[in-house]
Simulated scan of single mutants.
Amino acid sequence: MAPDTPLPSENALAVRYGVSRITSKRALNELANADLIYRLQGRGSFVKGHHNPSRSHRILLVIPFADSHGIGNYEQGISNALAATDWALLSMPNDQFARLPIDRIREEYAGVIYYPTALNEDMRELINLYLAKIPIVLMDKTIPGIEIPSVTADNESGGQLAVNHLLELGHRRIAFLARTPFWETFTGTVSARFFGYLNGYRDEAESDVDPLGWAQALTNRATPVERAAFLQAEKITGLVVENDLEALNLMQQLHHLHWQLPADLSVVGFDDLPAAALARPALTTVRQDFVHSGEQAVNTLLAQMNNPSSRLPVHRRIPVELVTRQSTVSKK
């Protein structure tokens, strides 16, 4: 919406969207707190003009994938949030972005939404953006100690939801499978999911379980035959996997080895990608709201652009939910 456009009143918003006046008032208050609107007593609420020190009206999405099939539909949420504004969205892969001079970024883009490939690979670019005071929001990752705002799913809660579901089904030997060797740094998305799994597992785990050792062993056993043998040797009946792609890949490998899923192994993934519901058996997974995450990233970025000197919430966690399907059953 253009700057200074009047917004509907609290009552009008409540009627239009079928919510209470309390809800519409809260929504307007959140927009005001984010510095996206301003209020004039007796006149109402108005869209605040975006402060844009560059001449560009373009926002850049830096993302390591050519499509959203591997990470979820963040781009839809970003586009939704920008639809009523005069900002244009462009996207670019991380390796191409790394070759851009900082002066060109400042000149051509008013702000950057950045999905890191891995923090250790992208840190130089992120530090350069931070020092250049270019508005930036991270997706899916956080950088402890640096005031770069970020938007992530509540991965710790997700890990706990996954393991609690398996515990409720009677499983007691539950492992965590990750392609990422998260134990090298114990930071990032996969570590957060592992810690959530660990927190949920603590009170019900058998005395001889070894969650970290199991995770390392499963990652280091590269072939399906080796992984299958390890799962059988350790009598593991439930598995929490770092994401849906890894979970679906493992399920396919075990199927080729004549495992009966979920009878032989109950599997829970993360993300709820479209393929999860189409698998056989359909994958139980922790759903994150990619669209809402994208919308929150835009709101956070626009708040920076409106008021560059203000201190923003460093980290926004988006709630997750468990989606139960046929890949998990009660332990025999």
Rank of each mutant, 00 (worst) to 15 (best):
Y130S: 14
G77A: 04
A34T: 11
T142E: 09
V137K: 06
Q41S: 13
Y115Q: 05
S56T: 09
W87D: 02
A12W: 03
G77V: 00
H51I: 13
I78M: 02
M139P: 04
L90F: 14
L40I: 10
L13Y: 05
Y114N: 07
V47N: 06
P53V: 01
K133S: 07
Q76A: 07
S79T: 13
L61I: 09
N120A: 15
E108M: 09
A12I: 01
A132N: 13
V62N: 00
D86F: 03
Q41G: 09
Q96P: 09
R124E: 12
L13F: 05
H69T: 14
E125F: 05
Y74C: 01
D103S: 13
E107W: 14
V15S: 09
D95P: 14
N128K: 15
Y74R: 03
P53Y: 02
A98D: 07
P53C: 01
S79W: 09
K133V: 05
G44H: 05
Q76L: 07
D67F: 01
L61T: 09
N52G: 13
N120D: 14
V62C: 00
F65K: 00
G111I: 05
G18W: 01
Q41W: 10
L100E: 04
Y115H: 08
S45V: 08
A32L: 08
N33P: 06
D95W: 14
I134F: 01
Y74H: 04
S56Y: 05
G42C: 08
N94D: 06
D35W: 09
Y130W: 13
A110I: 13
A110K: 13
P116S: 01
Y109K: 12
A98N: 11
E30I: 15
V62G: 00
A34F: 08
I105R: 03
G70N: 08
P135I: 02
F97C: 02
S68L: 12
H57W: 15
M139F: 12
Q41N: 14
M123R: 11
E125N: 12
N120P: 13
G70Q: 11
N80W: 04
L36G: 05
G70W: 06
T117D: 07
A132Q: 07
T85Q: 07
G42T: 12
I113E: 01
N128W: 12
A66F: 06
I102H: 08
S24V: 01
S20I: 02
D122F: 08
T23N: 11
G42I: 08
Y114Q: 04
A81N: 03
I136R: 14
R124C: 10
P101D: 06
A88Q: 14
L31T: 00
L60F: 02
A84K: 10
Q41M: 10
G49Y: 10
G70K: 13
R99A: 15
N29R: 15
A83M: 12
T117P: 07
S68I: 11
A88K: 14
A12E: 02
V137S: 08
R21I: 02
D86L: 06
E75Q: 11
R99W: 12
N80E: 09
I102C: 07
K48F: 02
D140V: 03
A110F: 10
A118Q: 15
D67S: 07
A83D: 06
N73L: 03
P53H: 03
Y17K: 11
A34L: 06
L90Q: 14
L129P: 00
Y130E: 11
A132E: 08
P64W: 04
E108A: 11
D122Y: 10
